[in-house]
Simulated scan of single mutants.
Amino acid sequence: MTFRMPPEWAPHERTWMAWPGPNPTFTDGAELAGARAAWAAVARAVRRYEPVTMVVGPGQAEGARELLGADVEMVERELDDAWMRDIGPTFVTDGEGGLAAVDWVFNGWGAQDWARWEHDSKIARHVADLVDVPVLPSTLVNEGGAIHVDGEGTVLLTDTVQLGAGRNPGWTREQVEAEIHARLGTGKAIWLPHGLSADYGRYGTRGHVDIVAAFARPGVVLVHSQQDPAHPDYERSRTYAEILRGHTDARGRTLEVVEVPAPTVLKDEHGEWVDYSYINHYLCNGGVVLGSFDDPHDEIAAGVFRRLFPERRVTLVDARAVFAAGGGVHCITQQQPKA
């Protein structure tokens, strides 16, 4: 039986999320409250298009319900953090009605000193059990935000994630590709050298691809484009676009690259470079949930997505509190495809 990961634009059964709880990512009460409000806003936006199930830590359901409303389902499980894209399963289908869950090894984004993963490393199996589907275990340390597929055999990866010393020391590129292809049903990997510069800060993922580039449909890939030469991602984003334009996909098509201008803001209130990105969006049934930043480029980005997805409604959700914690809209959602 051959399984493959459907593209994000394929029909979904539901979306899975995880509720923020007290942990090192949210260093005080105000940050945690802001994160919960942001997570809830994303959940409510996605719920307009499809069912949402929120995994909530023990004893936190009542407060979550107040923010989520009645339409979001909740289940209680032990959690360390709240990034369902990374801790949840990668769902795959067999094309004949079968669904399974790939369970990557999760080790806190490369065993970072602040991270905890005793509970999060088990969430993929918990979700698979709740859905009642078989688990396909992998020996590769990997996260859902570190891969992006076109549904026709192509996958995007980054050197500093799958080949990073904190994740898979000793693995070769060929070994990583073999495992990825075996689990996702892909046949061609396109490697980018690294992620955005701010993703290497304290709470960064060390190079997740879903903030850099994402397929919009087979043969078409969105790429982050920093417009200001003062930002270190100015050169990085040009490198990504050049690499992608030089590649063909698994079907032999030369990739069409759509550059999406980054928000105009360059630094946060602490004077640190930001990695605000519209690439880190989420496709759901009939909709696009797009992070916004109270920025002049918000509507420009929304226009790009409306042109690319004319059959979907674009919903803007303020993502600044999510990015402050180290991720974006895509990072906190995980699709369960229709089998």
Rank of each mutant, 00 (worst) to 15 (best):
F3A: 08
P6R: 04
A10P: 04
P11C: 12
E13P: 03
P20W: 01
G21D: 08
P24Y: 03
D28T: 02
D28Y: 13
A33E: 14
A37W: 09
P58C: 07
V75G: 00
L99S: 09
L99N: 09
N107C: 02
D113S: 13
R116V: 13
R125W: 05
H126R: 07
V127N: 00
V127F: 02
V133D: 00
V133H: 07
T139E: 15
L140H: 05
L140C: 04
V141K: 14
E152K: 12
T154K: 12
V155R: 00
T158I: 01
G164H: 07
T172H: 09
E174G: 14
Q175P: 10
L184F: 10
G185N: 08
W191R: 03
H194D: 15
V209M: 01
V212Q: 08
A214M: 10
R217N: 07
V220P: 06
V221P: 06
V223T: 05
H224E: 11
R236F: 06
Y240S: 06
A241K: 02
E242V: 09
L244P: 06
L244G: 02
T248E: 15
T248H: 14
E256D: 13
V257D: 06
A262D: 02
S277H: 04
H281I: 05
G286P: 11
G286R: 00
D294A: 13
D298R: 04
R312E: 10
V322N: 02
V322E: 05
A325F: 00
G326D: 02
G328E: 04
V329I: 15
Q334M: 13
Q335H: 10
Q335D: 01
